[in-house]
Design a protein around this nucleic acid. Structure first.
Lengths: 210, 210
DNA sequence: CCGCAATTGGGGAAAACCCTGAGTTTCGCC
DNA sequence: GGCGAAACTCAGGGTTTTCCCCAATTGCGG
Protein backbone atom coordinates (compact mmCIF):
# COMPACT_ATOMS: atom_id res chain seq x y z
CA UNK A 1 0.00 0.00 0.00
CA UNK A 2 1.35 3.40 -0.97
CA UNK A 3 0.28 5.95 1.61
CA UNK A 4 0.29 9.58 0.46
CA UNK A 5 0.23 12.96 2.19
CA UNK A 6 -0.87 16.07 0.30
CA UNK A 7 0.06 19.61 1.35
CA UNK A 8 -1.20 22.59 -0.61
CA UNK A 9 -2.84 25.79 0.52
CA UNK A 10 -5.44 25.69 -2.26
CA UNK A 11 -8.18 23.22 -1.59
CA UNK A 12 -8.96 22.93 -5.28
CA UNK A 13 -5.48 21.59 -5.91
CA UNK A 14 -5.82 19.20 -3.01
CA UNK A 15 -9.08 17.89 -4.42
CA UNK A 16 -7.51 17.44 -7.82
CA UNK A 17 -4.52 15.53 -6.49
CA UNK A 18 -6.77 13.48 -4.26
CA UNK A 19 -9.04 12.26 -7.05
CA UNK A 20 -6.19 11.54 -9.43
CA UNK A 21 -4.14 9.66 -6.85
CA UNK A 22 -6.98 7.75 -5.22
CA UNK A 23 -7.93 6.37 -8.62
CA UNK A 24 -4.68 4.39 -8.66
CA UNK A 25 -4.99 0.86 -7.29
CA UNK A 26 -3.05 0.36 -4.10
CA UNK A 27 -2.69 4.09 -3.43
CA UNK A 28 -4.30 5.90 -0.56
CA UNK A 29 -4.31 9.55 0.45
CA UNK A 30 -3.92 9.40 4.21
CA UNK A 31 -3.66 13.11 5.01
CA UNK A 32 -4.26 16.57 3.60
CA UNK A 33 -2.52 19.65 4.99
CA UNK A 34 -3.08 23.26 4.10
CA UNK A 35 0.11 24.69 5.54
CA UNK A 36 3.66 23.67 6.37
CA UNK A 37 3.31 23.08 10.11
CA UNK A 38 0.27 20.93 9.60
CA UNK A 39 2.14 18.96 6.96
CA UNK A 40 4.97 18.19 9.37
CA UNK A 41 2.51 17.27 12.10
CA UNK A 42 0.51 14.96 9.86
CA UNK A 43 3.66 13.38 8.45
CA UNK A 44 4.71 12.59 12.00
CA UNK A 45 1.34 11.07 12.79
CA UNK A 46 0.72 9.11 9.63
CA UNK A 47 4.25 8.26 8.47
CA UNK A 48 3.28 8.29 4.79
CA UNK A 49 5.25 6.69 1.97
CA UNK A 50 5.26 9.87 -0.07
CA UNK A 51 4.64 13.48 0.95
CA UNK A 52 3.62 15.85 -1.84
CA UNK A 53 4.42 19.41 -0.80
CA UNK A 54 3.60 22.62 -2.59
CA UNK A 55 6.62 24.89 -2.42
CA UNK A 56 4.57 27.90 -1.38
CA UNK A 57 3.02 26.99 1.92
CA UNK A 58 1.83 29.26 4.72
CA UNK A 59 3.58 29.17 8.11
CA UNK A 60 6.45 26.94 6.91
CA UNK A 61 7.75 26.84 3.35
CA UNK A 62 8.49 23.75 1.29
CA UNK A 63 12.21 23.69 2.03
CA UNK A 64 11.88 23.91 5.78
CA UNK A 65 8.97 21.50 5.85
CA UNK A 66 11.07 19.06 3.83
CA UNK A 67 13.93 19.32 6.28
CA UNK A 68 11.70 18.65 9.27
CA UNK A 69 9.86 15.78 7.66
CA UNK A 70 13.10 14.12 6.63
CA UNK A 71 14.29 14.42 10.23
CA UNK A 72 11.13 13.10 11.85
CA UNK A 73 10.00 10.56 9.26
CA UNK A 74 13.14 9.42 7.42
CA UNK A 75 11.41 6.75 5.37
CA UNK A 76 9.00 9.32 3.93
CA UNK A 77 10.04 10.54 0.50
CA UNK A 78 9.29 14.18 -0.27
CA UNK A 79 7.96 15.28 -3.65
CA UNK A 80 7.98 19.03 -4.20
CA UNK A 81 5.15 20.33 -6.34
CA UNK A 82 5.73 23.80 -7.72
CA UNK A 83 4.80 26.35 -10.36
CA UNK A 84 8.13 27.52 -11.64
CA UNK A 85 11.50 26.00 -12.20
CA UNK A 86 14.16 27.72 -10.13
CA UNK A 87 17.73 26.55 -9.89
CA UNK A 88 18.60 27.98 -6.46
CA UNK A 89 15.38 26.54 -5.11
CA UNK A 90 16.09 23.11 -6.52
CA UNK A 91 19.54 23.25 -5.01
CA UNK A 92 18.16 24.04 -1.58
CA UNK A 93 15.59 21.31 -1.87
CA UNK A 94 18.17 18.69 -2.71
CA UNK A 95 20.20 19.70 0.34
CA UNK A 96 17.06 19.62 2.46
CA UNK A 97 16.42 16.05 1.41
CA UNK A 98 13.71 16.20 -1.24
CA UNK A 99 13.85 13.32 -3.70
CA UNK A 100 11.35 14.59 -6.22
CA UNK A 101 10.57 17.80 -8.05
CA UNK A 102 7.42 18.12 -10.14
CA UNK A 103 6.33 21.17 -12.10
CA UNK A 104 2.61 21.88 -11.91
CA UNK A 105 2.45 22.14 -15.66
CA UNK A 106 3.87 18.63 -15.92
CA UNK A 107 1.39 17.19 -13.47
CA UNK A 108 -0.84 15.35 -15.92
CA UNK A 109 2.03 13.60 -17.64
CA UNK A 110 4.23 12.83 -14.68
CA UNK A 111 2.29 12.88 -11.42
CA UNK A 112 1.65 9.14 -11.36
CA UNK A 113 5.17 8.32 -12.51
CA UNK A 114 6.66 10.64 -9.90
CA UNK A 115 4.79 9.15 -6.96
CA UNK A 116 5.47 5.64 -8.27
CA UNK A 117 9.15 6.39 -8.47
CA UNK A 118 9.35 7.93 -5.01
CA UNK A 119 7.45 5.02 -3.51
CA UNK A 120 10.32 2.82 -4.72
CA UNK A 121 12.76 5.30 -3.15
CA UNK A 122 14.04 6.37 -6.52
CA UNK A 123 14.41 10.10 -7.24
CA UNK A 124 12.17 11.78 -9.78
CA UNK A 125 12.66 15.20 -11.33
CA UNK A 126 11.06 17.11 -14.18
CA UNK A 127 12.25 20.24 -15.92
CA UNK A 128 15.22 21.42 -17.91
CA UNK A 129 17.55 22.30 -15.07
CA UNK A 130 16.81 19.19 -13.13
CA UNK A 131 18.80 16.59 -15.09
CA UNK A 132 22.19 18.28 -14.98
CA UNK A 133 21.81 19.40 -11.40
CA UNK A 134 20.60 16.05 -10.21
CA UNK A 135 23.40 14.10 -11.83
CA UNK A 136 25.92 16.48 -10.30
CA UNK A 137 24.32 15.92 -6.92
CA UNK A 138 24.25 12.15 -7.23
CA UNK A 139 27.90 11.93 -8.25
CA UNK A 140 29.31 14.37 -5.73
CA UNK A 141 26.87 13.99 -2.87
CA UNK A 142 26.27 17.70 -2.96
CA UNK A 143 25.80 20.49 -5.45
CA UNK A 144 28.31 23.25 -6.01
CA UNK A 145 27.37 26.53 -4.44
CA UNK A 146 24.76 28.57 -6.16
CA UNK A 147 25.31 31.96 -7.58
CA UNK A 148 25.07 33.58 -4.17
CA UNK A 149 26.62 32.81 -0.80
CA UNK A 150 24.53 32.66 2.35
CA UNK A 151 25.48 36.16 3.40
CA UNK A 152 24.83 37.55 -0.04
CA UNK A 153 21.42 35.91 -0.10
CA UNK A 154 20.46 37.45 3.24
CA UNK A 155 21.54 40.87 2.06
CA UNK A 156 19.70 40.59 -1.24
CA UNK A 157 16.64 39.36 0.61
CA UNK A 158 16.55 42.32 2.99
CA UNK A 159 17.31 44.78 0.20
CA UNK A 160 14.50 43.33 -1.88
CA UNK A 161 12.16 43.69 1.06
CA UNK A 162 12.74 47.42 0.83
CA UNK A 163 15.43 48.07 3.40
CA UNK A 164 18.38 50.42 2.79
CA UNK A 165 22.01 49.37 3.08
CA UNK A 166 22.22 51.06 6.44
CA UNK A 167 19.15 49.27 7.78
CA UNK A 168 20.40 45.92 6.54
CA UNK A 169 23.72 46.58 8.23
CA UNK A 170 21.97 47.16 11.55
CA UNK A 171 19.82 44.06 11.18
CA UNK A 172 22.80 41.86 10.45
CA UNK A 173 25.04 43.62 12.93
CA UNK A 174 27.71 44.52 10.39
CA UNK A 175 29.15 47.64 8.79
CA UNK A 176 27.15 49.37 6.04
CA UNK A 177 30.23 49.20 3.89
CA UNK A 178 30.19 45.44 4.17
CA UNK A 179 26.59 45.35 3.09
CA UNK A 180 27.54 47.37 0.03
CA UNK A 181 30.23 44.86 -0.68
CA UNK A 182 27.91 41.85 -0.54
CA UNK A 183 25.30 43.68 -2.53
CA UNK A 184 27.82 44.57 -5.21
CA UNK A 185 29.23 41.07 -5.60
CA UNK A 186 25.72 39.65 -5.64
CA UNK A 187 24.73 42.06 -8.37
CA UNK A 188 27.75 41.13 -10.43
CA UNK A 189 27.04 37.43 -9.97
CA UNK A 190 23.44 37.59 -11.06
CA UNK A 191 24.36 40.09 -13.75
CA UNK A 192 22.18 43.08 -12.97
CA UNK A 193 23.01 46.76 -12.57
CA UNK A 194 20.06 48.15 -10.67
CA UNK A 195 18.15 47.53 -7.49
CA UNK A 196 15.00 47.00 -9.52
CA UNK A 197 16.46 44.09 -11.45
CA UNK A 198 17.89 42.64 -8.27
CA UNK A 199 14.44 42.66 -6.70
CA UNK A 200 13.00 40.87 -9.71
CA UNK A 201 15.75 38.28 -9.42
CA UNK A 202 14.91 37.81 -5.75
CA UNK A 203 11.24 37.31 -6.53
CA UNK A 204 11.80 35.01 -9.49
CA UNK A 205 14.00 32.79 -7.37
CA UNK A 206 11.75 32.70 -4.36
CA UNK A 207 14.05 34.66 -2.02
CA UNK A 208 11.08 36.83 -1.13
CA UNK A 209 7.36 36.93 -1.70
CA UNK A 210 6.05 39.47 -4.24
CA UNK B 1 -29.17 22.62 -15.94
CA UNK B 2 -26.14 24.74 -15.12
CA UNK B 3 -23.48 24.21 -17.77
CA UNK B 4 -19.92 25.08 -16.75
CA UNK B 5 -16.66 25.72 -18.58
CA UNK B 6 -13.33 25.43 -16.77
CA UNK B 7 -10.14 27.11 -17.96
CA UNK B 8 -6.89 26.62 -16.08
CA UNK B 9 -3.42 25.72 -17.27
CA UNK B 10 -2.84 23.27 -14.43
CA UNK B 11 -4.62 20.02 -14.94
CA UNK B 12 -4.63 19.32 -11.24
CA UNK B 13 -6.71 22.41 -10.64
CA UNK B 14 -9.06 21.44 -13.46
CA UNK B 15 -9.52 18.00 -11.92
CA UNK B 16 -10.23 19.56 -8.55
CA UNK B 17 -12.81 21.98 -9.89
CA UNK B 18 -14.36 19.25 -11.98
CA UNK B 19 -14.95 16.84 -9.11
CA UNK B 20 -16.25 19.55 -6.77
CA UNK B 21 -18.63 21.01 -9.34
CA UNK B 22 -19.87 17.75 -10.83
CA UNK B 23 -20.92 16.62 -7.37
CA UNK B 24 -23.58 19.34 -7.34
CA UNK B 25 -26.99 18.16 -8.59
CA UNK B 26 -28.01 19.85 -11.81
CA UNK B 27 -24.48 21.04 -12.59
CA UNK B 28 -22.42 19.79 -15.49
CA UNK B 29 -18.89 20.59 -16.61
CA UNK B 30 -19.24 20.80 -20.39
CA UNK B 31 -15.70 21.88 -21.31
CA UNK B 32 -12.16 22.14 -20.01
CA UNK B 33 -9.61 24.49 -21.55
CA UNK B 34 -5.92 24.77 -20.76
CA UNK B 35 -5.30 28.16 -22.32
CA UNK B 36 -7.13 31.37 -23.20
CA UNK B 37 -7.75 30.78 -26.90
CA UNK B 38 -9.13 27.34 -26.26
CA UNK B 39 -11.40 28.80 -23.60
CA UNK B 40 -12.87 31.33 -26.05
CA UNK B 41 -13.28 28.62 -28.68
CA UNK B 42 -14.99 26.22 -26.31
CA UNK B 43 -17.21 28.98 -24.92
CA UNK B 44 -18.34 29.70 -28.48
CA UNK B 45 -19.06 26.04 -29.14
CA UNK B 46 -20.75 25.09 -25.90
CA UNK B 47 -22.34 28.38 -24.79
CA UNK B 48 -21.98 27.56 -21.08
CA UNK B 49 -23.91 29.19 -18.27
CA UNK B 50 -20.75 30.02 -16.33
CA UNK B 51 -17.13 30.19 -17.48
CA UNK B 52 -14.52 29.82 -14.75
CA UNK B 53 -11.27 31.38 -15.91
CA UNK B 54 -7.91 31.36 -14.21
CA UNK B 55 -6.38 34.80 -14.51
CA UNK B 56 -3.01 33.47 -15.62
CA UNK B 57 -3.65 31.67 -18.86
CA UNK B 58 -1.25 30.91 -21.69
CA UNK B 59 -1.84 32.48 -25.13
CA UNK B 60 -4.61 34.81 -23.92
CA UNK B 61 -4.91 36.16 -20.39
CA UNK B 62 -8.02 36.24 -18.26
CA UNK B 63 -8.95 39.83 -19.06
CA UNK B 64 -8.76 39.46 -22.83
CA UNK B 65 -10.46 36.08 -22.74
CA UNK B 66 -13.27 37.63 -20.69
CA UNK B 67 -13.73 40.40 -23.23
CA UNK B 68 -13.95 37.98 -26.13
CA UNK B 69 -16.27 35.59 -24.38
CA UNK B 70 -18.60 38.41 -23.38
CA UNK B 71 -18.68 39.52 -27.01
CA UNK B 72 -19.29 36.09 -28.51
CA UNK B 73 -21.43 34.50 -25.81
CA UNK B 74 -23.19 37.35 -23.99
CA UNK B 75 -25.35 35.12 -21.83
CA UNK B 76 -22.26 33.40 -20.42
CA UNK B 77 -21.20 34.80 -17.06
CA UNK B 78 -17.48 34.92 -16.40
CA UNK B 79 -16.01 33.99 -13.02
CA UNK B 80 -12.35 34.87 -12.60
CA UNK B 81 -10.38 32.48 -10.44
CA UNK B 82 -7.10 33.87 -9.20
CA UNK B 83 -4.34 33.60 -6.61
CA UNK B 84 -3.94 37.15 -5.41
CA UNK B 85 -6.17 40.10 -4.89
CA UNK B 86 -5.15 43.02 -7.04
CA UNK B 87 -7.10 46.23 -7.32
CA UNK B 88 -5.99 47.32 -10.81
CA UNK B 89 -6.69 43.82 -12.06
CA UNK B 90 -10.15 43.77 -10.57
CA UNK B 91 -10.81 47.12 -12.18
CA UNK B 92 -9.82 45.84 -15.59
CA UNK B 93 -11.89 42.74 -15.16
CA UNK B 94 -15.01 44.71 -14.30
CA UNK B 95 -14.54 46.81 -17.43
CA UNK B 96 -14.00 43.66 -19.48
CA UNK B 97 -17.32 42.26 -18.30
CA UNK B 98 -16.48 39.74 -15.60
CA UNK B 99 -19.23 39.30 -13.04
CA UNK B 100 -17.38 37.20 -10.53
CA UNK B 101 -14.02 37.22 -8.78
CA UNK B 102 -12.95 34.29 -6.63
CA UNK B 103 -9.68 33.98 -4.74
CA UNK B 104 -8.14 30.52 -4.88
CA UNK B 105 -7.75 30.52 -1.12
CA UNK B 106 -11.49 31.12 -0.79
CA UNK B 107 -12.38 28.32 -3.16
CA UNK B 108 -13.63 25.75 -0.68
CA UNK B 109 -15.91 28.19 1.10
CA UNK B 110 -17.24 30.10 -1.85
CA UNK B 111 -16.86 28.13 -5.08
CA UNK B 112 -20.35 26.67 -4.98
CA UNK B 113 -21.91 29.94 -3.89
CA UNK B 114 -20.07 31.85 -6.61
CA UNK B 115 -21.18 29.60 -9.45
CA UNK B 116 -24.70 29.51 -8.04
CA UNK B 117 -24.81 33.27 -7.95
CA UNK B 118 -23.43 33.71 -11.46
CA UNK B 119 -25.89 31.16 -12.84
CA UNK B 120 -28.65 33.50 -11.62
CA UNK B 121 -26.83 36.41 -13.31
CA UNK B 122 -25.97 37.97 -10.00
CA UNK B 123 -22.42 39.21 -9.42
CA UNK B 124 -20.22 37.48 -6.87
CA UNK B 125 -16.94 38.78 -5.47
CA UNK B 126 -14.65 37.72 -2.64
CA UNK B 127 -11.84 39.64 -1.03
CA UNK B 128 -11.36 42.85 0.88
CA UNK B 129 -11.08 45.28 -2.02
CA UNK B 130 -13.98 43.82 -3.88
CA UNK B 131 -16.93 45.21 -1.95
CA UNK B 132 -16.09 48.88 -2.15
CA UNK B 133 -14.93 48.69 -5.73
CA UNK B 134 -17.93 46.73 -6.87
CA UNK B 135 -20.46 49.05 -5.30
CA UNK B 136 -18.72 52.02 -6.92
CA UNK B 137 -18.91 50.26 -10.25
CA UNK B 138 -22.57 49.35 -9.93
CA UNK B 139 -23.60 52.87 -9.00
CA UNK B 140 -21.54 54.79 -11.54
CA UNK B 141 -21.27 52.27 -14.37
CA UNK B 142 -17.52 52.59 -14.24
CA UNK B 143 -14.70 52.76 -11.71
CA UNK B 144 -12.57 55.81 -11.05
CA UNK B 145 -8.94 55.72 -12.10
CA UNK B 146 -6.50 53.85 -9.95
CA UNK B 147 -3.96 55.33 -7.64
CA UNK B 148 -1.50 56.12 -10.42
CA UNK B 149 -1.89 58.30 -13.47
CA UNK B 150 -1.01 57.03 -16.94
CA UNK B 151 2.33 58.76 -16.94
CA UNK B 152 3.18 57.53 -13.48
CA UNK B 153 2.31 53.98 -14.43
CA UNK B 154 4.59 54.08 -17.48
CA UNK B 155 7.43 55.41 -15.39
CA UNK B 156 6.96 52.85 -12.63
CA UNK B 157 6.76 50.11 -15.23
CA UNK B 158 10.04 51.06 -16.88
CA UNK B 159 11.76 51.61 -13.55
CA UNK B 160 10.61 48.20 -12.36
CA UNK B 161 11.99 46.65 -15.52
CA UNK B 162 15.41 47.80 -14.40
CA UNK B 163 15.89 51.06 -16.26
CA UNK B 164 17.40 54.14 -14.63
CA UNK B 165 15.65 57.50 -14.47
CA UNK B 166 17.85 58.71 -17.30
CA UNK B 167 17.00 55.78 -19.53
CA UNK B 168 13.31 56.14 -18.83
CA UNK B 169 13.57 59.84 -19.68
CA UNK B 170 15.06 59.00 -23.06
CA UNK B 171 12.42 56.37 -23.79
CA UNK B 172 9.60 58.74 -22.94
CA UNK B 173 11.28 61.75 -24.51
CA UNK B 174 11.19 63.88 -21.36
CA UNK B 175 13.65 65.32 -18.87
CA UNK B 176 15.19 62.98 -16.29
CA UNK B 177 14.04 65.42 -13.66
CA UNK B 178 10.47 64.90 -14.76
CA UNK B 179 10.86 61.17 -14.47
CA UNK B 180 12.12 61.63 -10.93
CA UNK B 181 9.07 63.69 -10.21
CA UNK B 182 6.61 61.08 -11.47
CA UNK B 183 8.53 58.39 -9.66
CA UNK B 184 8.37 60.36 -6.42
CA UNK B 185 4.64 61.05 -6.57
CA UNK B 186 3.97 57.44 -7.50
CA UNK B 187 6.00 56.29 -4.52
CA UNK B 188 4.10 58.59 -2.21
CA UNK B 189 0.80 57.37 -3.59
CA UNK B 190 1.53 53.69 -3.14
CA UNK B 191 3.25 54.46 0.16
CA UNK B 192 6.75 53.12 -0.32
CA UNK B 193 10.14 54.69 0.27
CA UNK B 194 12.49 52.59 -1.81
CA UNK B 195 12.89 51.37 -5.36
CA UNK B 196 12.78 47.81 -4.11
CA UNK B 197 9.33 48.19 -2.61
CA UNK B 198 8.14 49.98 -5.72
CA UNK B 199 9.21 47.04 -7.85
CA UNK B 200 7.33 44.67 -5.58
CA UNK B 201 4.25 46.84 -5.94
CA UNK B 202 4.61 46.76 -9.72
CA UNK B 203 4.85 42.99 -9.72
CA UNK B 204 2.01 42.45 -7.26
CA UNK B 205 -0.27 44.58 -9.38
CA UNK B 206 0.68 43.08 -12.69
CA UNK B 207 2.40 46.15 -14.12
CA UNK B 208 5.30 43.90 -15.08
CA UNK B 209 6.13 40.21 -15.09
CA UNK B 210 8.48 38.93 -12.39
C1' DC C 1 -12.95 81.80 -15.39
C1' DC C 2 -11.25 79.39 -11.75
C1' DG C 3 -9.72 75.36 -9.45
C1' DC C 4 -7.51 71.11 -9.52
C1' DA C 5 -4.89 67.57 -11.09
C1' DA C 6 -1.64 66.04 -14.44
C1' DT C 7 2.72 66.97 -16.43
C1' DT C 8 6.77 69.21 -16.61
C1' DG C 9 11.09 70.79 -14.41
C1' DG C 10 15.16 72.76 -10.68
C1' DG C 11 18.36 72.44 -6.48
C1' DG C 12 20.35 70.08 -2.90
C1' DA C 13 21.00 66.21 0.43
C1' DA C 14 21.17 61.37 0.72
C1' DA C 15 21.87 56.97 -0.79
C1' DA C 16 23.40 53.72 -4.03
C1' DC C 17 26.97 52.21 -7.12
C1' DC C 18 31.94 51.08 -8.67
C1' DC C 19 36.83 49.82 -7.97
C1' DT C 20 40.56 48.70 -5.41
C1' DG C 21 42.75 46.70 -1.56
C1' DA C 22 43.24 44.05 2.64
C1' DG C 23 42.64 41.64 7.30
C1' DT C 24 40.24 37.64 9.38
C1' DT C 25 37.58 33.51 9.94
C1' DT C 26 36.05 29.10 7.94
C1' DC C 27 36.23 25.10 5.57
C1' DG C 28 37.74 21.10 2.84
C1' DC C 29 41.70 18.46 1.94
C1' DC C 30 46.36 16.24 1.83
C1' DG D 1 48.36 20.00 11.70
C1' DG D 2 49.16 22.83 7.89
C1' DC D 3 47.61 24.97 3.45
C1' DG D 4 44.86 27.08 0.13
C1' DA D 5 40.48 28.73 -1.45
C1' DA D 6 36.56 30.98 -0.60
C1' DA D 7 33.64 33.55 2.36
C1' DC D 8 33.11 37.34 5.41
C1' DT D 9 34.61 41.54 7.03
C1' DC D 10 35.78 46.58 6.40
C1' DA D 11 38.10 51.10 4.27
C1' DG D 12 38.97 55.00 0.96
C1' DG D 13 37.39 57.76 -2.45
C1' DG D 14 35.16 58.52 -6.41
C1' DT D 15 30.83 58.82 -9.73
C1' DT D 16 26.05 58.20 -10.49
C1' DT D 17 21.39 57.77 -9.11
C1' DT D 18 17.62 58.32 -5.82
C1' DC D 19 15.10 60.90 -2.97
C1' DC D 20 12.75 65.08 -1.24
C1' DC D 21 11.45 69.74 -1.13
C1' DC D 22 9.71 73.31 -4.40
C1' DA D 23 7.58 75.93 -8.69
C1' DA D 24 5.78 76.68 -13.56
C1' DT D 25 2.90 74.99 -17.32
C1' DT D 26 -0.68 72.94 -19.46
C1' DG D 27 -5.63 71.08 -19.70
C1' DC D 28 -10.04 69.75 -18.41
C1' DG D 29 -14.60 70.17 -15.87
C1' DG D 30 -17.70 72.93 -12.85
Amino acid sequence: MTRILIADDHDVVRSGLHTILSAQPGWEVVAEAEDGRQAVQLATDTQPTVAILDYRLPSLNGVDATREIRAIAPQTEVLIFTMHESEPLLRELLEAGARGYLLKSDARKFLIAAVESLALHKPFFTGKISETLLSAYLSHGHVSDGALTTRERSVVQLIAEGHSNKEVAQMLGINPKTVESHRATAMRKVDVTSTASLVRYAIRNGLIEP
